[in-house]
């Protein structure tokens, strides 16, 4: 599903953010990406939707070599991904429903199909009763669940989450992580960047540990 082969990312202002990263996620696999802040977790995740391009090395997503994609192909690549952010990145002047509908509107779905899928996604994150609310009126955990509903509404095969529980308390964090595991159980490939080591060890998934831009050997 996702493969990194000897990927480097160097910023002109300072050093290698990523150096020689190689790993592979099989379809339906779930993995955590850990490491101290500044270890390169976010950088690694930014390379997959081509928010940035690697300096060297090859990345394939669903068998497609990202180096071969031009800037015009980026939107279509991103529609195959579900992105989840630490700060949720919701549209605060739109309702929960409209936020979740966004990827479908972008992909050009009709209103009937959008309604069906948005409600299914909201049901999945248990927010069906709050579809008409605005994100500001929701708790942090609820906001992140809106973010998750938005990331799964178009049924992407690969979900990427960057510190999804970074702004949440432990109980909510566990709830969100269990939600990811549920998604994974229906066949979605999931890659989560997190430094919540206690929670990660309890979930028992594969762990990729970054240290100063390099992957530690997996045990």
């Amino acid at each position: 599903m996702l493969q990194f082969s000897n990927v480097y990312k160097r910023y002109p202002e300072g050093g290698d953010a990523l150096a020689g990263i190689s790993f592979r996620l099989k379809p339906g696999e779930m993995a955590f990406l850990t490491g101290h802040s500044g270890a390169g977790k976010s950088t690694l995740l930014r390379l997959i939707p081509l928010i940035e391009r690697p300096t060297r090395g090859q990345i394939t997503v669903g068998g497609r070599n990202l180096a071969r994609l031009g800037n015009r192909d980026i939107p279509h690549l991103r529609r195959q991904l579900g992105l989840i952010f630490q700060d949720f990145r919701l549209l605060y002047d739109r309702t929960v429903y409209d936020n979740v509908a966004l990827p479908l509107v972008i992909a050009g779905f009709g209103p009937a199909e959008i309604g069906r899928r948005v409600r299914a996604a909201l049901d999945k994150v248990d927010l069906l009763s709050k579809e008409k609310r605005y994100p500001r009126g929701l708790s942090g955990g609820e906001q992140q669940r809106v973010g998750i509903a938005r990331a799964i509404v178009h049924k992407p095969p690969l979900i990427l989450a960057d510190e999804p529980t970074g702004n949440l308390d432990p109980a909510l964090s566990e709830e969100i992580m269990l939600l990811f595991r549920e998604l994974n159980q229906v066949g979605v490939t999931v890659l989560i960047a997190s430094h919540d080591l206690g929670l990660i060890s309890r979930l028992g998934s594969r762990v990729l540990e970054l240290n100063q831009g390099r992957l530690e050997p997996e045990h």
């Binding site: 939707p49 928010i51 939107p75 279509h76 690549l77 991103r78 529609r79 991904l81 992105l83 990145r89 919701l90 549209l91 966004l102 990827p103 972008i106 992909a107 938005r150």
Partner: peptide, 16 residues
Amino acid sequence: EEEIAITKLMGATDGF
């Protein structure tokens, strides 16, 4: 600006 950035992350084309 933020809305544009988010829609682009969700796969919006320039046309959209």
